[in-house]
Amino acid sequence: GRSLAAALVMRDALSLEEILQLYSQPINEEQAWAVCYQCCGSLRSRGRRGESPSRRVESPADIRIWKDGTVTLGDGARRPPAEGKSEYLHRPETEVIESLGIIIYKALDYGLKENEERELSPPLEQLIDYMTNTVEADGSKDEGYEALDEGVEEENDKGDVEVIQSYRDVMKLCAAHLPTRSDAPNHYQAVCRALFAETMELYTFLARIK
């Protein structure tokens, strides 16, 4: 048990799947908001650094929560691309957002029976509804080359998002969920940091008992 506990302490990231399995219960709503915000934030900056295009989120194993509270799309269970279908085709943002919304909903629904449904707060249900019903950007709102420092948390930005077309739109909706939008980056990073820390604590505790 001690060596496993020691090995765990070395970990600096956990997948959402590991978190769900460990607690064997769904994530809470604030964690859902936070993972959406942080994941879209890293996808957005990744796109601007011209890194390899992101893929659809296929399972909670693809979502990694890091010790510092950042959230990335990892390789999950690295599967070879299906025959003829290149896994590395650039996926439009809307497709990645839709897949993220589905996985986040499933994380909120984790452990519930097929005929049971969790009552979500209207704003979170709306976020997930918008994420899973995205509309292909018509190019006029090209997300890729927006100014890096254009924050999503401007207070005077009253343009409420009605339709999601970009990672930035998701982040704006998540920021609008807070009393002060400008708190979004720190707040959501803190929520994810705590999620990682609490899970590691439980992991280590269970390993010691084993």
Partner: peptide, 23 residues
């Protein structure tokens, strides 16, 4: 199982769970 921190209701055909399960 302890009391859950969220309310559970009957799944609704027009609810978000039904919509997402069709995706």
């Amino acid at each position: 199982k302890g009391k859950s921190l969220y309310n559970i209701k009957q799944k609704h055909d027009s609810g978000i769970k039904a919509k997402i399960s069709m995706k």
